[in-house]
Structure formats: structure tokens, C-alpha cells
């Protein structure tokens, strides 16, 4: 903070005495300026793209396991595709600590609902709406959760897929990718869905695998280990860690 003594400031005028250009803390008192709050201005430990789309009977969400510290591949086993309840799966990109915090809120919400024991279960559209409120509230306090959330599920027999970003902007679509995925994977998925609107679960998995592969080669913050979450009428499956099959023998031909 301002006016504190550190290694670079001038030494005190005498032992335990005041320093030039600094507020003096009299002995036995501590009047440092520490009544401040800091709002989040940048993510710290980040996760990259989330890939999600609907298929014939459900929704599939994929995300790799890396949490980067800047460009450093810092933590390599950070799952970010989660089961919320039997109706809902969720994926997250952006700040990993914020994701963990929001995950705890969501888990607590589910626990409270289970405690009511009234037979009603949270539906994907409701969670999507709730997340929008949370995110918009935080951005309005100038302290956003630095995340992109993707909510998938089955509601009234139909696949649901929606996303919320750190500003509380929310939309539904049948294919949603965040971060670099929006540039690299989304065109592939839209193309595939256009050619084959009633994709089966196997085809969906193959498409997602392809996307993870493309992203691993082109996105410098990605990682070959990833998880996928699939929700259908049969329930929720979180699979992984899966591995991108890598092939580098062409690399020397690229200049």
C-alpha cells in the first residue's frame, strides 16, 4: 500500500523512528491502512475452453483438466465438469477458485433441496436462471466471478443447454463453446450438427473427442487429459480422465 516501509524506501531516521515519505506508526500502535477491499480484476488460476452441445437424446459437455497459472501449466488434475443432480450437468471455464466457490454454492443448494424432501428436483433451466442472477449480482458489485458456466440437462424430455458469463450475459443454444473453443471448436460442431441434426450419443462423443484434439493442438493453455459429462434420460455420466491421442511426426514439416 501507499506510504509503507519496504525494502526500497529510505531507512528510518533513527532506530524504530519515522521514515522519510511514510506515515509513522508509533510504537505500540498499528494504524496501517488495511480497511480496503480488492475487487477481482483478472483471473489467477485459469481453466480454458468448455465444449458443449446437444445431441439426439441429451447433452454432452467436455473440458480438460488443466488449471494454468498464467501460461504455466500449474495444476494438471483439476476437474471442471460436474454433476449437479440427476437432471443437470455443469461445466466451467475461467478462474478455478471462483469455480470452486460457485460449485460449493450449487452443492449447498442441492443439499438444502434434498433436506426439504418434497420430491421436487432442481431443473436445468432453474439452475441456469439462478446462475445468471449470481453472476449478474457479482458483476454489479464490480467483483465478478471470472467464469464461463455451461449448464446442460434434460427438461420436459428435451435437451437443454445454456451458458452464463462473468457479466451475467446468458443465452441458450444447441452448441456452446467458451474461450478459444468458441473460435476453434464451435464451427466444427455447428457444421457437424447441420449435417447430422439427430446425432447419436456415440457420434456426439466422437465429435467431442475431435474437438478436444483440435483444441489441444492449437490452444496453448490446453492439456491432453480431459473429462466429458453426458446426460441422457438414462442419467448422468462423468467420464475421464480421457487422453487426446497425439501425433507429432508431422511437426518437423511445419515451418
Amino acid at each position: 500500500m501507499f506510504n509503507t516501509v519496504d525494502a526500497y524506501s529510505a531507512p528510518p531516521l533513527w532506530k524504530n523512528g519515522p521514515s522519510p515519505c511514510a506515515f509513522h506508526n508509533f510504537p505500540g500502535t498499528n494504524c496501517e491502512n488495511n480497511d480496503f477491499t480488492q475487487h477481482s480484476q483478472a483471473p489467477v488460476t485459469t481453466a480454458t475452453s468448455v465444449i458443449a452441445f446437444t445431441f439426439n437424446t441429451g447433452v454432452i459437455i467436455g473440458g480438460d483438466l488443466l488449471a494454468s497459472y498464467g501460461s504455466l501449466a500449474r495444476y494438471r488434475n483439476c476437474p471442471r465438469v460436474m454433476k449437479v443432480n440427476d437432471n443437470i450437468i455443469m461445466g466451467a471455464g475461467g478462474d478455478y477458485a471462483d469455480f470452486q466457490y460457485v460449485k460449493d454454492l450449487v452443492d449447498q443448494k442441492i443439499i438444502e433441496e434434498d433436506c426439504l424432501d418434497d420430491g421436487f428436483k432442481l431443473k436445468p433451466r432453474s439452475l441456469y436462471c439462478w446462475l445468471t442472477r449470481i453472476m449478474y449480482n457479482r458483476r454489479s458489485r464490480f467483483d465478478p466471478f471470472w467464469n464461463n458456466f455451461v449448464v446442460g440437462g434434460i427438461q420436459e424430455g428435451l435437451p437443454f443447454l445454456g451458458t452464463v458469463d462473468k457479466l451475467g450475459t446468458a443465452y441458450e443454444d444447441n452448441a456452446i463453446c467458451t474461450g478459444y473453443g468458441a473460435h476453434l471448436a464451435l464451427p466444427l460442431i455447428r457444421d457437424a450438427l447441420e449435417k447430422n441434426p439427430l446425432m447419436s450419443e456415440e457420434e456426439a462423443k466422437a465429435l467431442l473427442t475431435k474437438c478436444m484434439e483440435v483444441l489441444f493442438y492449437r490452444d496453448a493453455r490446453s492439456y491432453p487429459k480431459y473429462q466429458i459429462g453426458v446426460i441422457t434420460d438414462d442419467g448422468v455420466k462423468i467420464e475421464g480422465p480421457l487422453e487426446v491421442s497425439q501425433k507429432w511426426d508431422l511437426a518437423h514439416m511445419i515451418h
Binding site: 426439504l116 418434497d118 421436487f120 432442481l122 431443473k123 433451466r125 432453474s126 441456469y128 436462471c129 439462478w130 442472477r133
Partner: peptide
């Protein structure tokens, strides 16, 4: 309705 985007189930309201 604001947070969940659906009408509250009657039982929860009565609670």
C-alpha cells in the same frame, strides 16, 4: 420466480 424462473411448488409455498 426471479431466481428459479418457475412458479413455486404449492407445498414449498405452504411451508
Amino acid at each position: 420466480r426471479y431466481t428459479e424462473n418457475v412458479c413455486i411448488p404449492a407445498e414449498r409455498l405452504l411451508e
